[in-house]
Design a protein around this nucleic acid. Structure first.
Lengths: 114, 114
DNA sequence: CCCAATAGTATCCATTCGTGTACTATATCC
DNA sequence: GGATATAGTACACGAATGGATACTATTGGG
């Protein structure tokens, strides 16, 4: 929740949504959580290039914004699970269309380079 | 075009798309350009809270990324028009779903506050 | 002359973002 | 003891972002 006021003009809702999912790795994290609950280490393995630091940071931010639920089990070694909240679940069509567009875009770039 | 490499895992296309539209005001700008070609001043009036500086900056970035076409007319006073490129046009479903989600989200927040 | 219209540019600055590096805590096993 | 598993935290730093402020350039009108 970074950017505050847009004067709530007609395009405002676009930025409201972007404001929640904007941030490196957030989109990918949400994408992976769509497949179901994940533990920290699972997520990390799904995204080989992400640092522990960034994964923690973005997960906490997503939790803070209400998109993700973080469940801590009183276990050792630590066991923490991350799940899409109801609000996060409602982002499914958003993530899907972003993914589709990105794939299409990439395919076109490859075709243009040839 | 800020964030570079995601190792191109399965969620990568989501971030590719976000990378192009991320940035304060970009979403709103793209939304307004969906209605058709706009001049600088027109856009500025549609978004009362944006500074000239930010409008210029984001328009230039969108142009740089190929989402927007900037057409300069050899006139005085200056006349510059901004139009969605073909690539930008293909973002329509993305902007639409972001808007829909943001509106839904806002409505829920209002309901929750009551 | 000044003001208006248009679409900027130049410079600067505070804040945020993404990341690197090192360290933490617990229990268990060799 | 050291190593492993898990999921972090603490501190620091450079780059990027968003914005403020002032100025620019042209033509035309009062």
């Amino acid at each position: 929740m970074k950017r505050k006021d847009f004067g709530c003009g007609p395009g405002c809702p676009v930025e409201v949504t972007l404001d929640l999912i904007d941030g490196k790795w957030k989109g990918v994290i949400l994408f992976h959580l769509q497949d179901g609950t994940c533990r920290f280490g699972e997520l990390k393995r799904k995204m080989p290039r992400i640092t522990q630091r960034m994964l923690t940071k973005q997960l906490r931010a997503l939790e803070e914004d209400g998109l993700v639920i973080r469940k801590v089990y009183p276990e050792v070694p630590p066991r923490v699970e991350y799940t899409l909240s109801e609000m996060g679940e409602r982002l499914r069509p958003v993530i899907d269309v972003l993914k589709a567009w990105g794939e299409d875009h990439r395919a076109r770039q490859v075709a243009d380079a040839a």
